[in-house]
Design a protein around this nucleic acid. Structure first.
Lengths: 210, 210, 210, 210
DNA sequence: CATGAATGAGGCTTCATTCAT
DNA sequence: GATGAATGAAGCCTCATTCAT
């Protein structure tokens, strides 16, 4: 949950370094989401993290390394929350587990990372060097959902003609919904919309509807 | 093929100017889609149109004016194709008309504008100046689909709990699918996938499935 | 009074060419005065003369040639008017002739060329190539005044310690007054000020004052 | 020697910053005078200050901000020197004080700022943004001279028909003389000319001459 | 460790000038 | 002769990055 490469110096007061790093990454994720790769200026990152621009280079050797760290952190946080949902309800019906996953994903996007969809969208305009990281994220993210869908299909609880297409639809809906939902002012309406959204997604995977 | 602002001088070889303008806009649309607003450099536009950079200023007085023209051309082309589909089959069942719309939209995105989804996506990082154009495009685009869905709901042919949510899902699926589909190599698989995609979308609007 | 290099083709309907040239030069003089050498864009000149920019090159082979023509026309017009004043009153007292010269110069600057002072001011920022023309203009201009002053000094009508210094003062006063006067709104005040200005200049050349 | 905005951090080697800033401003003043606003290129400023062009932006956020600083520095330096002259001889006769002022102004223009006249001349072609600064400079500059002249008129030591006209003449003479004088090679002649110049100016304000 | 200073590369835009029609 | 089209050079400004303190 901290950063990945810990382990060398178990614990020391260089924890401060990790805290700073995490703060910088947090700002970077936010800027990446709102402004895109080209729009994220190191000036803005430094401002947001309350440090001077050259100080960034004590933590990340280049803009692209910072971006990589941001992508990785973002991936891990999202995946961890999704996996936690599955762990919390290991015995549920597959249909309910899928519903829970979708619901959690939507909550992540409205509450914590309103912008994550724009980062991992298929979209290009990112340097090639990050393609692998973004593809990997999408793959791992897809695997979480796919595993539940496959089990549901085998158990006869779910039903869709083409699982690849169905999962693409799922990702499309979720990515698109992220910013749309986070722009709603009325919080009650937001909740209602979220519920309807989950239902709409479930339609893609089920024949009879609740 | 559809340049705007024609009609003033139906004259002769100033057609060349319009052709050049259209070519520049074409390159701009492509770059906007692949690289985003910030990533679209006038150098690249000029290169793509085989002219020198300052020559761009004979046709567009600034980068933003070129971008505006690109957005407008893109909007008009897409909307015209969708409307043409509706006009071609005015008497069909609403369900079939919706299916035709979705199908056409997907074809637009795979054949002509593989990237249109990324331009009109909710995403930010565009100068405020273009917000209105992008919102307007989404609004008009949504209206085409909504009108068919509303008619279908009233006729009892379609059925969805929340029309706003359903349409958002539709747009999300389509936007997301655009680049995904255009990256497929095998053209037969592409066709199959398109068909499955349309079916998946239709699930959101219908209770019994064909 | 037309342009200088006439004489080859005595008269023809290529008079049109000369008229165009004169119009262009007129616009150029105005822009040179209000915007300076760097500020005078050929776009503006073409606009002001109601022709297209490349058409300028049919009349002047470069910006600098146009500028040269402008300087020459300006010089000639001003000098011609000053000489005409002297010719009109050949027998007057030298003091009165000087007063008439100063008065005419001020009228030129307020009525016809409000900006001429800024062009021939000592100021630099002009390409070297025009230095000679500007120096020559100043020399010829100075000669007109100097000739009267010298005659006045010899006749004992005028009196100044250093004729070079006195003439420099005269030019400085006149150049500076040009834009100052032309900014006055009240035309009666303008007249009064002009009269006082002439008196002030005369003080430099006379011991007893009228 | 007089940098503005000191006092905040009376600290140590951030003095270097102020020195650099002053150096840049010095170069800018010189270029503004010799080349005008449009002629002053940031390339030249950077060359003159022996730094790279982007480095300028560490000190001034735009060309216009640099120009503003240059105008302000120039104004302050000139006014301070003039006021110092008045302070040095507070008890002198008004006529002598005026003579001292004129003398000092001429020395400023020949020794330190040969070009100041061309910057604050009435001339246009400057962006509107600097109009206020230039007008303000002329106003404050005029006030210094006017105050002495008014006192001299009231005391009966000076005499001129129209004080506004007389002061305009003074400024015109001084501005015009600046570059003229600074082009003289022979330093003895320069001194003689300066003295004669002061005498000529004094004629405008006095009836009997020394 | 932290930062002010510095900069090469690149981005948008303007301008005087040439070329083809 | 007149003009729309085209462009190389230059101008102002930004940004990721390095260096010295």
């Amino acid at each position: 949950m901290e950063t990945v490469e810990t382990g060398e110096t178990p614990t020391r007061l260089s924890r401060r370094r990790e805290r700073r790093k995490a703060e910088i990454v947090r700002v970077a994720i936010s800027l990446l989401a709102t402004s895109g790769y080209q729009g994220m200026g190191l000036d803005d990152v430094a401002d947001g993290a309350d440090i001077a621009k050259p100080t960034l280079y004590h933590y990340f050797s280049s803009k692209d390394e910072l971006v990589s760290a941001a992508l990785e952190t973002l991936s891990n946080n999202v995946l961890n929350r999704l996996i936690a949902v599955l762990d919390d309800a290991p015995g549920d019906a597959h249909r309910d587990r899928l519903r829970a996953l979708v619901n959690e994903q939507i909550r992540i996007m409205t509450e914590e990372y309103p912008e994550v969809g724009t980062i991992f969208a298929w979209q290009t305009s990112w340097p090639d060097m990050h393609d692998e990281a973004r593809k990997s994220m999408r793959r791992r993210h897809d695997a979480v959902f796919r595993q539940v869908v496959v089990a549901g299909l085998e158990a006869g609880e779910l039903d869709c003609a083409n699982i690849d297409v169905a999962l693409q639809c799922l990702h499309g809906i979720i990515n698109n919904a992220s910013i749309w939902l986070s722009q709603m002012k009325d919080s009650e309406q937001t909740l209602t919309t979220q519920r309807d959204l989950v239902s709409a997604v479930m339609r893609i995977f089920t024949t009879e509807h609740s």
